[in-house]
Amino acid sequence: MEGQSSALDAADAGRTGRFDEGPDDLAGLVARAASGDEQAWADLVQRYARRVYALAKSRLRHSDLAEEVSQSVFVTVFQFVSSGRYVERGQFEPWLFRIAMNRIRDVVRRSGRSARTNDDGLGERESRRFTDPSAPDELDRLRLAIASLSAPDQEIISLRHHAGLEFRAIAAMLDEPVGTLLARHHRALKKLKAILERMGAGDSEVGES
């Protein structure tokens, strides 16, 4: 019963991206996974699978591809960790999401699926691609607005919000200073706000605040 509730907690944490464990606990979890502990693997998957999926979905805008990327990332992680090729230096999270970003880039390169990089508004075709019947309109508009950001801006937004990474982890992953990333994130949010205002959707929301 206790194991079941801890699994449910992990699943919730996977959705929210919030964990009470510190880096030492994560290192211990990875070490246990490396030694073949099935429960440790289940915990790692619970913790990261949905965050990897959300990152891939935000970049690829395709559920099936995002699912395949998630599987592929964990296969690689499993191979490296279980064979002892992964050396724990407290960088598990940046390492895992770097694999994810590389996989996403591979898919983009192969399928020609790429993020929009202009600010000229969104075409009808693009709009249709983003329309998700299960998503509220507000989120749909937000997706459209994100798609009109530049590639680096989209990247920082995806890593920070969809993957739920801290700026330190993003800095380690992209090999850039934290300050640079904070500034980029700030600028990206400003641009996003401007785009939403232009789209007319963000007016009332932003005005209220």
């Binding site: 949905r50 959300a54 919000h161």
Partner: peptide, 9 residues
Amino acid sequence: LAMHDRSEP
């Protein structure tokens, strides 16, 4: 939006 996407699978 991120929470929505994570809940999708």
